[in-house]
Design a binder for these strands. Structure first.
Lengths: 176, 176
DNA sequence: TACCGCATGTAAACGGTTACATGATTAC
DNA sequence: GTAATCATGTAACCGTTTACATGCGGTA
């Protein structure tokens, strides 16, 4: 039921059609799972059923009408609840980014918490990789050393970005 | 059937039990999809059926026997074929790393090709994000700007790493 | 004329996870 | 004693993709 929250999050910004939801994600493909229509439309019907969204049919001359969905009060609340649920520990990049994409629905504190949690996790991942290098002296001729190296580089870059983002958040808070 | 190639790739390094396959991936959770036993053991049975792997039952006194799987000639060939298939264009980090993990089964040229393809893709992704910043002047108050920024940071780090890895590969080739 | 973008949907198939079942050994 | 690790497996369930179906408007 994850796709439902993704939809809800996107609808928070502005009302959209199913087609819009998908196309707004298209150039973020590599960072986020883009749902197929085969899961998107049924999910929208389900959300409507559950009164998480409302439907406005916008007729257009000549062209067929657009079905524009808007998030409701209870939809907003459901998203909020999901967002403030604790994150599990070994989240992938896609899982992290998907939630981050919904950050507009976060409070400033919620966002800071989220980034701090991620910072902790990513630091742990980096440490685990470093330990692996020490314990396994380049086993079987560089077999997976590429992956370890890559992981180290990515984790470091992410940590840097997170610290940066967190610092800017603090500055904003101080200014206000 | 992707999990089958993952197994085949890991067995290329050394013979393993199903349990070993899973645990060897465990601290790479965030970079690779770790299969559950519910898909791992059936996959192993399928590979055995198709003669991609062989089974050696290793008895141990007291403890129950271990079922150690080894890759066969045809398993190796199947993996090779899959590995040299063209990569599709919007590969996620996990998809990239999973293949990279199997890099031991690559020829030097195959590996260089693979990294170069990834470099091209990641550069494209970064460009797309940069274009997005220009065309959409921070729409709806920093809504998704965090994601764009994050993507930019990660893509840049990855490009740097790829260029570095590629350079080292060339050095090695020149030395030999 | 033919293809691409817009736009919405359904049904079958697929790949995977969850939960369950079992059992021994080692470490706290 | 009891929790964790090692070790193997099955069956039901579930969410998603793939393939199909349809149709209009603009463009090459």
């Amino acid at each position: 039921m994850n796709i439902r929250y993704l939809i809800l999050g996107l609808l928070t910004r502005k009302p959209m059609t199913g087609y819009d939801v998908k196309s707004s994600l298209e150039d973020l493909k590599w960072l986020v799972d883009v749902p197929s229509y085969g899961s998107l439309y049924p999910a929208l019907h389900g959300l409507l059923e559950d009164e998480m969204v409302t439907l406005t049919v916008v007729p257009r001359e000549g062209k067929p009408s657009r079905k524009v969905y808007s998030i409701t009060e209870s939809g907003s609340k459901a998203l909020q609840d999901w967002l403030h649920q604790p994150v599990e520990s070994d989240t992938s990049q896609k899982a992290f980014v998907t939630r981050l994409l919904l950050a507009g629905s976060f409070s400033q504190d919620g966002l800071r918490d989220y980034l701090e949690q991620r910072l902790g996790q990513t630091s742990d991942h980096r440490s685990a990789l470093e330990r692996r290098i020490v314990s396994q002296p380049d086993a079987s001729g560089g077999l997976e050393s590429l992956v370890v190296e890559y992981g180290l580089a990515i984790a470091s870059a992410e940590i840097l970005w997170l610290e940066n983002a967190l610092a800017r958040l603090s500055d904003q808070a101080n200014a206000a």
